[in-house]
Design a protein around this nucleic acid. Structure first.
Lengths: 239, 239
DNA sequence: CGCGGTGTTGAGACCTGTCAAGACGTGTGG
DNA sequence: CCACACGTCTTGACAGGTCTCAACACCGCG
């Protein structure tokens, strides 16, 4: 059930059998949400976090006037709002992008983990720091890359993240976002997303049809994006 | 010495005398760096973190072609690269913006803290999650706010963060960045920073002269920025 | 069959970038 | 004390990337 999550964690550090049991014991109820539902509102008090088993979610921030910015995409295996454990409340909404299956983890169990399993605590601390590293890369994208490179970069990031949890096939993966939502990630309007997508297509870099993204030339795509996966911390280290 | 850091922490949670002693025991050597020096390079192996005592630093990310994006500003009291403790290596450089005084904290002491002080561990975990929240707000700024609001927002954020550690006087504070560096925070060129600054000045919102920023009308500035301090987690809670 | 959401296209406006030149200020050396 | 260099700030003209608005095409679904 939480196999994808374990894949994600084990890509970054060794987890003993004992620790794996502890991780499995964190998980409580499994629940499902339909697509496009706001699961957590910002400033809401939290007493549990969500481990994403299936589907896509995102962290969404709003401005008056209906402008929206997605701060991160979450894919299966992600501990969507683990940061809520110490923050107690979020500064953003959590929204489903597709139908989702989620395992709930009560904060009291996480708290118990911090009392008894220092190494696991460091591993989960690491995971939230990894999210922050992704935020920084998005900051760089939004600040300095133009539309084409920004979009190429996102496609590379998602490719690597999905590959870790076994959700790519050759160079392709399911990519359920609409062009409007893609624009909300990239700080672009849907009109410009459309044109940028056409340009990527014209250059034979990617193809996006029927909610499936196919990378035609990964090396060129990375090069257009100036993509360097070091911010995803793919090495196994003692955390 | 670490009083500003304690002010920052105590604004978010209660710290017992015992815990305060432990925090003070984390600190090793105190070192100084001149302005504009790269203190940590990305991907460099780390075995200590830095607590900023005096001066300003930043997290800097580079693109080929010399484009640079500052991902976060660090002010006195900040644990500049605490995330390096679990990440082991950073995805960005750490650069001084002014002359700086820094307390070094060996990672082995942090590791020891995670073994013996679960509550302090959660507090420091919280601090890195706070950084991530700041990253998210910058993502929102870069993605959706235009130059004027973006700059106004930064000035509000820094005001609140400096006030916590006692570095504001009425509505003003030392702001040592050049317009080029301000642009590197805001994803703008220095030319446009200059014009945007003039516009803020023309609207009687702020004044920036001789490296000192004076907020003339905080309420209007907040309103231009759509600034809501909830992402800075100013409430004291049990972490 | 009609409808709502999604994707596509075009024209023009606007925000921000680029390039280039000059002003200002401060520290250094003669 | 002056001359100069260098970094920083300022200004103008123009270019270019992205947005806005509007219309239309497409498609799955009730």
């Amino acid at each position: 059930m939480i196999e994808k999550h374990l894949l994600k964690v084990r890509a970054r550090d060794d987890i003993s059998g004992d620790e794996e049991r502890e991780i499995r014991a964190l998980v409580g109820q499994v629940v499902e949400f339909p697509a496009r539902q706001t699961v957590i509102r910002s400033e809401q008090q939290l007493n549990q976090s969500m481990l994403l088993l299936d589907g896509w979610m995102c962290r969404m921030k709003d401005l008056h006037g209906g402008q929206r910015q997605i701060a991160e995409l979450n894919v299966p295996g992600d501990f969507v709002d683990l940061h809520g454990f110490t923050l107690k409340t979020l500064d953003h909404d959590v929204v489903t992008m597709t139908d989702c299956r989620v395992a709930l983890v009560p904060h009291e169990r996480l708290r118990d983990m911090t009392e008894r399993y220092p190494h696991l605590t460091r591993v989960y601390w690491f995971l939230t720091n990894l999210d922050a590293a992704i935020h920084r890369e998005w900051t760089l994208s939004l600040g300095r890359r133009r539309a084409l490179a920004r979009m190429a970069h996102l496609f590379c990031e998602i490719f690597v993240r999905l590959r870790i949890v076994g959700l790519t096939r050759d160079g392709s993966y399911d990519f359920p976002l609409t062009q409007v939502e893609l624009g909300e990630c990239l700080g672009l309007t849907s009109v410009h997303v459309n044109r940028t997508l056409q340009e990527l297509r014209r250059r034979d870099l990617v193809e996006l049809r029927a909610r499936r993204l196919k990378i035609l030339n990964l090396e060129s795509l990375k090069s257009v994006a100036e993509f360097d996966d070091c911010y995803l911390y793919l090495e196994k280290k003692q955390r």
